[in-house]
Nucleic acid binder design. Structure first.
Length: 866
RNA sequence: GCCAGGAUGGCGGAAUUGGCAGACGCAACGGACUUAAAAUCCGUCGGCCGCAAGGCUGUGAGGGUUCAAGUCCCUCUCCUGGUACCA
């Protein structure tokens, strides 16, 4: 038996020992099914980068791990898995440079990550580890793609991509900086290429609606709502004047109520009617504008957003309400891809239209009497609005808005909208309409290191899918990973793999050379964990039914929109296929905050790299100049040299201190700066806790009232805080417990057991070691059942928290004046009497009239005396 | 610009439904132990006034509601994240 009585806290040996114990005995292997209630806690799986783990990763992982350990003790069957989102650009770029196959780089990085993660003592079920680049995994990613294809949700379209002629390759948006390639700074142009698209827009409404029932941060839900961008309004059809042909133009507007104020119309330069309606005199100018616009990237178009540009087409449309001819312009502030690619412009009540009208001297016609209240806070003069000198985009009442058949005057914006839509529908020249900002998802990349599409383009132009039985379609081995030079992925050079002959008909075909984007693998990984080794289906329906949905999903806020929207979309498709049983995958979502590094700047605001800073008692100084520096938190980055490496923290203080500090820093969701001396604080706490348990005589005795109160207050606070993910305050309470019990001569056995068990969810290595000690278990050849991992969580008893007397604060006019012990059962009347009879209070209110006395039981008495 | 979140000691942060601001920790200072250091332990620690008892003041700024405001309402400033001509 290892005797740790009166020993020193030796984290290095303890941590190694228990990590081995957990792994060797598969302590955290999850039952596929159980009578126990289930709890599925999911961490966003990492991209295993070459630089290894940083302190931000373990933050979320520690939080879920603590919760999982707690839930196991609460009797839950817990699923807590880990895996690797391992496709991605860096491994391919490295392959281009060095010829090393991306799978080699990837596996090496995964090994590093796994080792680093294991060193933190997380209770993952490693038998469920997944890797998106494993063919047994991406086989099912391809399978799901085929499901999408079968349902008509995947299609090919010509879409402009970032083509870099100098590099002979297509670049991802993040590889293009200010219109130049990130590597080499070559120019990048937009070039249409055939791409796979996924019809996420078909699910726009559901993606929006189902957000309401999710327990997600309000901010994330709002971001998703904005991304989907639903708007309601109307489509209105305008006749083009002076043409024999029917060149009707339909516009989309959210403000049909302002149709009387439409003084011109704008088409996107790409609008297909532009070439038909442009008059001869305007052709040269229009052609030039259209050409220039097509060369501008989206980036350039938005960067030049300050100045409005456009060209008159020479044609006129007829405002259906006023009968007036209004000029038709083209301008790139109207996007071809949104709505109908054409707008009616109401400069008086739309800021963009107003700017344009001012630039080109187009009349502004005010048709809204601004709302008086809004007008007041906006600081614009009502005369200017009415005169069309200022744009009014706020609310109000319609004016100047009547023709022989329709009179909107006096109506509010909402009433006028409804009336206009009804009129348009009756006349058959428009209708109510809904639009979404959400676009279909560009789902192909011109890369090697991604999932190949199970698609063959046949000679006759048809598309053949690879039969499910033949999946996975494996990436071919290649020597070279250089771009093909044509814009196609390097797979275009894999001749043998590329060419296909139909075994039945003999028809030739060519495999799809695009690969799927990195998002693909992460869209459904949470389902694979449920049944990670199934090789006949992606996951069994029975297991899915038991485990889904994910009860808690923790990860970085950077995935607030795309990853979460994409996987919700796939999940809904799988739901419609009958493959999953829930509409939404992630019931509760929490974003862990970013961890910042401590940085230093001098009085001129110049940031000094952290390793050039000398720390003294009276401040921080530049090692070179001796100048005093100001400390401030900044994003960890190599250039500031403020990156904290978890390995260093673990080797110096141990994994338990690392875990504890990550949780003690502050609320999980908050952005907070890493401060190494804070780690020392929790390390001291662990040493103190160790001394409390091993250095005091453990006595199996009745506890005193005070001891019971502290113990049960601790159990209560820790339990409640864990339920709300309040890890920092739970740890504070454990510190209070240690401070209080350290004052005693001995340690009551029950208090020791309960405390050690609570500690064990936060600091599991020290927790296990101390658990064996307080239970008198022999520590060598330990039976598996002796682990603390599944011991029932301690219960608190409210009875022990009760006190008979409490200190009541006596205030006069809200200021604290006296404190008095009273029975907890004192009635307000009794409290008032006691308070008013206190000598010091009597003195204070002498000569004054007591107007009112407020008594809050168990808390305070406030005497209002003047 | 718009949307979301935030601002509390020297620092990280605590504070049920409005009810004693600053729990817990860090740093700092004073002391004990030590030949010395580390480790550990004890004490002080928002600001101002005061020998003290005590008083005044204090949660980004200004106003309001209330017996009582970090917490609720209005206006403003600054920070962080998201988004960008979406008609």
């Amino acid at each position: 038996m290892t005797n740790i009585k009166n020993s020193e806290y030796d984290f290095a040996n303890i941590e190694k020992k228990w990590q081995d114990f957990w792994v060797d005995n598969k302590i955290f292997k999850t039952e596929d099914f159980s009578d126990k209630p289930k709890f599925y806690a999911l961490d966003m799986f990492p991209y295993p980068s070459g630089s290894g783990l940083h302190v931000g990763h373990p933050e979320g992982y520690t939080a879920t791990d603590i919760l999982c350990r707690y839930k196991r003790m609460q009797g839950f069957n817990v699923l807590h898995p880990m895996g690797w989102d391992a496709f991605g650009l860096p491994a391919e770029q490295y392959a281009v440079e060095t010829g090393t196959h991306p799978s080699i780089t990837t596996n090496k990085n995964i090994d590093t990550f796994r080792e680093q993660i294991k060193a933190l003592g997380f209770s993952y079920d490693w038998d469920r580890e997944i890797n998106t680049t494993d063919k047994n995994y991406y086989k099912w990613t391809q399978f799901i793609f085929l499901k999408l294809y079968e349902r008509g949700l995947a299609y090919i379209d010509e879409v402009p991509v970032n083509w870099c002629p100098a590099l002979g390759t297509v670049l991802a948006n993040e590889e293009v900086i200010d219109g130049l390639s990130e590597r080499g700074g070559h120019s990048v142009e937009r070039r249409p290429m055939k791409q796979w698209m996924l019809k996420i827009t078909e699910y726009a409404e559901q993606l929006l609606e189902d957000l309401d029932d999710l327990d997600w941060p309000e901010g994330v839900k709002e971001m998703q709502r904005n991304w989907v961008g639903k708007s309601t309004g109307a489509e209105v059809t305008f006749k083009v004047a002076d043409f024999a042909e029917n060149y009707d133009i339909t516009v989309y507007t959210t403000r049909p109520d302002t149709l009387f104020g439409a003084t011109y119309m704008v088409l996107a330069p790409e609008h297909n009617l532009v070439k038909y309606i442009t008059t001869a005199e305007q052709t040269v100018a229009v052609d030039k504008y259209v050409k220039d616009a097509s060369l501008k990237s989206d980036l350039a178009r938005t960067e030049l957003a300050t100045e409005k540009t456009g060209v008159f087409t020479g044609a006129y449309a007829v405002n259906p309400l006023t009968g007036e001819n209004i000029p038709i312009w083209i301008a790139d502030y109207v996007l071809a891809s949104y709505g109908t690619g054409a707008i009616m412009a109401v400069p008086a009540h739309d800021t963009r239209d107003f700017e344009f009208a001012e630039t080109f001297n187009i009349p502004v016609k005010c048709i809204l009497q601004p709302d008086a209240k809004e007008l007041k806070s906006s600081k614009v003069a009502v005369e200017d609005v009415l005169a069309g000198k200022v744009c009014w985009a706020g609310g109000g009442v319609a004016i100047n808005s009547a023709n022989e058949e329709l009179d909107l005057n006096g109506l509010s914006v909402d009433e006028a909208k409804a009336a206009t839509i009804k009129y348009l529908e009756d006349k058959n020249i428009g209708k109510g309409a809904v639009n979404y900002k959400l676009r279909d998802w560009l789902f192909s990349r011109q890369r090697y290191w991604g999932e190949p599409f199970p698609i063959i383009h046949m000679e006759d132009g048809s598309i053949k899918t690879v039969p499910v039985e033949e999946l996975p379609l494996v990436l071919p081995e290649m020597e070279e990973f250089k771009p093909s030079g044509t814009g196609e992925s390097p797979l275009a050079n894999a001749t043998e793999w590329l060419n296909y002959v139909d075994p039945e008909t003999g028809m030739k075909g060519r495999r799809e050379t695009n690969t799927m984007p990195q998002w693909a693998g992460s869209c459904w990984y949470y389902l694979r964990y449920i049944d990670a080794t199934n090789d006949i289906e992606p996951f069994s329906a029975e297991k899915e039914n038991y485990w889904m949905p994910v009860d808690l999903y923790v990860g970085g806020a950077e995935h607030a929109v795309l990853h979460l929207l994409y996987s919700r979309f796939w999940h809904k498709v799988l739901f419609d296929c009958g493959l999953v049983s829930t509409k939404e995958p992630f019931q509760k979502l929490v974003n862990q905050g970013m961890i910042l590094g401590l940085s230093y700047k001098n009085s001129r605001g110049v940031i000094i790299p952290t390793d050039q800073v000398e720390h003294k008692n009276d401040g921080h100084f530049d090692k070179e100049t001796g100048e005093q520096l100001e400390e401030f938190p900044a994003k960890m980055s190599k250039s500031l040299r403020n990156v904290v490496n978890p390995d260093d923290v673990i080797s110096q203080y141990g994994a338990d201190s690392m875990r504890l500090y990550e949780m003690f820093m502050g609320p999980l969701e908050a952005t907070k700066p890493w401060n190494t001396s804070g780690v020392e604080g929790v390390y001291r706490f662990l040493k103190k806790a160790w001394r409390l348990v091993t250095g005091h005589e453990l006595v199996d005795r009745e506890m005193t009232k005070d001891e019971l109160r502290v113990l049960h207050a601790t159990i209560k606070k820790v339990t409640n805080d864990l339920e709300d993910l309040g890890f920092n305050t739970a740890i504070s309470q454990l510190m209070i417990f240690v401070n209080e019990f350290s004052k005693g001569k001995d340690l009551p056995l029950q208090a020791a057991k309960d405390f050690v068990q609570m500690l064990a969810v936060f600091a599991p290595h020290a927790g296990e070691e101390l658990w064996q000690y307080v239970n008198g278990n022999p520590n060598e050849d330990m039976p598996v059942e002796n682990t603390v991992a599944y011991v029932a969580w301690p219960q608190f008893n409210e009875e022990y928290l009760q006190v008979s007397e409490v200190e009541i604060l006596i205030q006069v006019l809200g200021k604290p004046k006296a404190r008095v012990m009273m029975s907890v059962n004192a009635t307000p009347k009794e409290m008032e009497e006691i308070a008013l009879n206190l000598p010091e209070i009597k003195e204070l209110i002498q000569g004054k009239t007591v107007r009112k006395v407020i008594c809050v039981p168990k808390s305070l008495v406030n005497i209002v005396a003047t």
